[in-house]
Write a protein that binds this DNA or RNA. Structure first.
Length: 859
RNA sequence: GCGGACGUGGCGGAAUCGGUAGACGCUGGAGACUUAAAAUCUUCUUCCCACAAGGGAGUGCGGGUUCAAGUCCCGCCGUCCGCACCA
């Protein structure tokens, strides 16, 4: 009996598929079309197990769809612009383009070894002018349609390196390289008007039946539509020519619980106060230190500065509320100014307790209606209004309307819809991205680059010796002439956010003419993406931007589709144990750390890779030093924790099918998968076991009704599981079938079962399946074969097991014909010895019978 | 801080509609084959009490609804993801 030899078979079949063009998508095919896409990778250097899992899932679906008669588009490309390439350039003095292209070449080889059913003829890389040039054309379309504008917006500024930092480069408010305290600085930047589509993006979620509810909910919250009241407080004195302050609130009903008014540190009023008051200026500067990220700002300790000014309560002239500048008020939301109601908002309560402001209850908490609010936990629930004059007794919603009505009648405010969603800032002060195709002219302003001058290509001769934007520093690149007036002008040196690249790549995959971004009818032959698979971390930004971009194209008449992705699946991460070694420092390290000899007992902690360690007697040791290693938490594979596993050696050793099989086994795809040596070995053993079953198959006569039923239930089950992307369940069902086949004696049924099983495993273990298909004389490639059909007549059981419970506890089981009448089941249950023992002569109070399921006797 | 999810044996997980908790796999134990090992095969493996028959407990924790709760409701705890310049 032979062994399945992936080392030979994998490459052989991969070559055959490639030469036959098996996975080329044919737009003109008459079969129903199916677009399967996984989020394209950033070419970081090596494929990691997370990619392997992602692409294996998509591949199983793509291959399955081919077998069920679909014409499948399953492409692959590279999200090739981004920061790591520039970091590599700085650290290793290698050009970002060179680094990126080398990574792409290496990763393409790695992917090909896994035997994915990809149409490589459509491969694209976003860093090439033949991609980003078309993106520039789309940007100009948006520009001309009024969907692009410039405004001032804050960035993280490193005052030492004189450069803009990404949020992830700001660590505890300091620049990652310089260590300097980061400042928020305003720059004039480009924005895309995603807020124009806020309503439609929100409404569109309702039709996305193929998306997980959690993702839709996250997007809904992100868009954050809220009804509220925008109104003007009179101020006790004018400042910078303003005698009022406009605030926005979603809780106008709580207006009588207000105890202070606050503005953001970058609100114009704060700036005006700071101009005259050095203390205020100091506070504003303090608030502006540190990064721009909302997580940092909102989790910081709540602080305020009392401006000494007051705002007059809209319903009572004599009621003055102190006016603060506060670090937790966001300039980007609403009007950048709020009124605080401490009793009914936790943030406001924390603030009020800190600055000893009154805390007044205006919503009754059950029976509690006293005006004086006790405790440190705000009450944000529903209730009826108290201590609120004309609102007393109203419910929250009613009171909201009443206040809005009064404000509108009094002319001091109006009910509005406010969105949390902000316009998409696409400017990046970096080199490795799509150049924004704009020329700045002193007299004409920003002017689009003429279409015949596209693409605006990145210059190759740039240096990364100094931090900052190399495009801006380049001696000649930004010199240009105004396309309108011909005068000397300056090229825009900002590049586009890389999310722009990933906002339309799925359209380019479907249609890639040379002279335009895509052809409408060709793209629409494939769109929308039927099944998109990627990590949850993209649930909001990437997916929202892609939805927006498609809508923008739709508005311009370039596409009829509005929703780019009809089916979405978010898969879990691949994790691994981490290994931490505590060892004495070497002499060099001790020197470098400045530890003197007295500190000799100090030890150094170091992460080890899975290859560095060995297992002995249930403990783990460092192979080099022999010291025991402590096993850390199971975490997402990452370079910093050194817990990565490279797919290449694993594929060498076990073959692509075993790796793919493991990626699909056990863990449900939406959950994390823990990589383990034992797991991959288990998959390898199973692949070999399948082969032995196939190879040892003998034709025989006779029927095996049990096996026939098992086979047909497996066909139906595996198909349904693949369609639901429940690969772990499909794998379990194939295990069960193979167990049943192994136990069965040779028969015609067994022969059929084995032959059919080969087709069932074909999407998951395609190399083994081709090998087996050929060995058993199958016609053509199994990749082109048809998915077997389940015989409905064999799916129904004729006998079922009925659970017999007494007071909800299982006491016995009995076999009954399927569909047996209730009374019959009840009689059978009551006849049971075990039931009689439990009853002990008592009469049952009640008997519940669920046909084909159980009988529950209540005593 | 805000928003979203998840939690079941030693481990990964299954349980489609509120109806037999633990399918399938991993690990481990015992045995067969072998000169031996690997591979393979057989068998056991939620915990506790018991020689056994059998009994009890059990799905993160605390309550609740129900004849019946892993599943529904309320309140906690823990872990993970996102928060607009990481991709």
């Amino acid at each position: 009996m032979s062994r399945f030899n992936p080392q030979a078979a994998d490459a052989r079949w991969q070559k055959i598929w490639e030469e036959a063009g098996t996975f080329h998508a044919d737009t003109s095919a008459s079969r129903p079309k199916c677009y399967v896409l996984e989020m394209f990778p950033y070419p970081s250097g090596r494929i990691h197990m997370g990619h392997v899992r992602n692409y294996t899932m998509g591949d199983v679906l793509a291959r399955y769809r081919r077998m069920t008669g679909h014409e499948v588009l399953h492409p692959m490309g590279w999200d090739a612009f981004g920061m790591p390439a520039e970091n590599a350039a700085m650290e290793r003095k290698v050009h970002p383009g060179e680094w990126t292209r080398a990574n792409i070449a290496a990763m393409r080889d790695q992917l090909k070894r896994l035997g994915f059913a990809l149409d490589w003829s459509r491969e694209l890389a976003t860093c090439e002018p033949d991609y980003y040039g078309h993106e520039q054309a789309l940007f100009l379309d948006f520009f001309e349609a009024g969907l692009v504008y410039r405004k001032q917006s804050a960035v993280n500024w490193d005052p030492v390196d004189m450069t803009v930092l990404a949020n992830e480069q700001v660590i505890d408010g300091k620049g990652w390289r310089s260590g300097a305290t980061v400042e928020r600085r305003k720059l004039s930047q480009w924005f895309l008007k995603i807020t124009d589509f806020a309503d439609d993006l929100l409404a569109g979620l309702e039709e996305l039946d193929g998306w997980p509810d959690k993702v839709k909910l996250m997007q809904e919250n992100w868009i954050g539509k809220s009804q509220g009241l925008r109104f003007r407080f009179k101020l006790n004195r004018s400042i910078a020519g303003q005698s009022t302050l406009t605030v926005f609130t979603t809780r106008p009903d709580t207006i009588f619980g207000a105890s202070f008014v606050a503005v953001a540190a970058d609100h114009p009023l704060a700036a005006a106060v700071a101009e005259k008051n050095p203390e205020a200026a100091k506070f504003v500067a303090e608030c502006q230190a540190g990064g721009t990220s909302a997580a940092d700002i909102e989790s910081a300790e709540k602080k305020g500065f009392d401006t000494g000014m007051t705002a007059i309560h809209p319903f009572e002239e004599g009621w003055e509320l102190p006016l603060y500048i506060a670090n937790f008020v966001l300039m980007d939301y609403g009007t950048g100014a709020i009124f605080g109601v401490p009793a009914h908002d936790q943030r406001d309560l924390d603030f009020a307790r800190k600055y000893s402001l009154p805390v007044r209850r205006v919503i009754a908490d059950g029976d509690e209606r006293a005006a004086e609010f006790e405790g440190d936990e705000a009450f944000s629930g529903d209730g009826s209004l108290v201590n609120s004059r004309f609102l007393d007794g109203m419910e929250v919603e009613e009171a909201k309307s009443a206040v809005i009505e009064r404000a509108e009648d009094g002319g001091w405010g109006e009910g509005t819809t406010e969105w949390r969603l902000r316009d998409w800032g696409v400017s990046r002060q970096r080199y490795w991205g799509t150049p924004i195709p704009i020329i700045h002219c002193e007299t004409c302003g920003p002017v689009g680059v003429p279409r015949d001058q596209l693409p605006v290509v990145l210059p190759e001769d740039v240096d990364f010796e100094t931090p900052g934007n190399p495009l801006d520093r380049h001696p000649s690149w930004k010199d240009a002439h105004c396309p309108k007036c011909g005068e000397a002008a300056r090229r825009e040196t900002d590049t586009l956010d890389t999310f722009a690249n990933s906002s339309w790549y799925f359209i380019r995959f479907a249609s890639q003419p040379e002279d335009k971004p895509f052809d409408k009818s060709e793209a629409e032959a494939w769109l929308p993406v039927g099944q998109y698979i990627g990590g949850v971390e993209h649930a909001i930004l990437h997916l929202l931007y892609a939805r927006f971009w498609t809508r923008a194209l739709n508005r311009l008449g370039k596409l009829d589709v509005k929703e780019p992705i009809s089916g979405l699946f978010t898969q879990g991460m691949v994790t691994h144990e981490t290994y931490l070694l505590n060892r004495p420092p070497t002499a060099d390290e001790r020197h470098a750390l400045g530890w003197d000899d007295e500190a000799a007992h100090e030890s150094i902690s170091e992460w080890l890779t899975p290859d560095d360690v060995e297992r002995r007697a249930g403990k783990i040791f460092d192979q080099r030093s022999g010291l025991e290693v402590s096993v850390g938490r199971i975490e997402k594979m990452s370079k910093s924790k050194k817990n990565t596993v490279d797919p290449d050696p694993i594929v060498d050793q076990y073959g692509a099918d075993a790796v793919r099989w493991f990626m699909l086994s056990d863990s449900p795809p939406e959950r994390d998968l823990e990589w383990s040596e034992a797991g991959i070995e288990g998959s390898w053993r199973f692949v070999q076991r399948l082969w032995r079953l196939i190879d040892g198959n003998e034709a025989a006569d006779g029927e095996d009704a049990d096996l026939d039923r098992k086979l047909h239930r497996t066909i139906a089950g595996v198909g349904a599981d693949i369609e639901a992307l429940s690969f772990n369940k499909a794998v379990a069902k194939i295990h069960e079938l193979s167990n049943a086949i192994e136990k069965a004696a040779p028969s015609a049924s067994r022969d059929t079962a084995i032959r059919t099983m080969v087709r069932l495993v074909a999407p998951m273990a395609p190399h083994l399946a081709e090998e087996a298909w050929q060995a058993m004389g199958g016609e053509g490639l199994i990749a082109d074969a048809e998915w077997p059909e389940a015989d409905a007549a064999l799916l129904v059981e004729d006998e079922v097991t009925i659970a017999v419970q007494v007071n909800g506890k299982l006491r016995d089981t009995l076999a009954a014909a399927k569909g047996a009448p209730k009374i019959e089941l009840e009689e059978m249950a009551l006849a049971s010895d075990k039931v009689a023992k439990q009853l002990d002569g008592q009469e049952p109070k009640k008997v519940i019978v669920v046909p084909d399921r159980l009988v529950n006797i209540v005593i």
